[in-house]
Amino acid sequence: MSNPVLTVSHLKKTFGENIVLKDIDFFANEKDVVSIIGASGSGKSTLLRCINQLEKPTSGDILFHDKNIQDSGFSLSNYRAKVGMVFQSFNLFNNLSVLQNCVVGQMKVLGRDRKEAEQRAMDILSKVGMDQYISAKPRQISGGQKQRVAIARALAMDPEILLFDEPTSALDPEMVGEVLNVMTSLAKTGLTMLVVTHEMDFARDVSNRIIFMDAGVILEDSTPEEIFNHPKNERTRMFLNRSIRNT
């Protein structure tokens, strides 16, 4: 078996006195679709943000293909191009059209020329069903559409891993489906995905692994089958009961 794409070891993150991540050990293999679940404030988002270096870990290592991403010689810019991120609040570039949102990174970071970048952007935008809206500005489209463009923007960089930070939490209920559909079809293409989510159906049906986090530690890391049917930890069981009753 090949080495994991991503390995996190002894990761710790504190904000002042507040310990958000205690001692996280975790890995992701190629083609893994990992759902990260847990209550608010359990450190799920912080873990994703550390992986993509939007937060600097207090201590611990993050390895990408066995290379430590915090080494001084490591190119963070190349790494981030390969590790895409989709945010809860979309964060589309407000000054750029839908098409340009998907083009700017390819040109500036990957050095593609405009023609190639626009071609690639069009391909992906049509996959997420947003090719009709290429000349719209972010303020002119709906939340679900924004999130689909945000996914396309990340995919245009040809990432090896895509990180999703609660991608449907800021959406109106009727728009959650369109974004989950895109994510489900992405999972089928074999893209490695780490998804922080409160969508239990997605976690159960689409991911091949689920991580349950509580108070800055990983309490359980197993298959959806195991987690949903035979949770080992009392806290996992309680969390799932609450979440499933709510949906």
Binding site: R80, M85, K108
Partner: peptide
């Protein structure tokens, strides 16, 4: 400008100066 705009630019690998000029 919303911090999310910086973060989105950084997350696709743009440097600080690229983020400034383009976004």
């Amino acid at each position: 400008i919303d911090k999310g705009q910086y973060e989105a630019a950084q997350s696709i690998g743009m440097t600080h100066s690229q983020t400034m000029v383009n976004i």
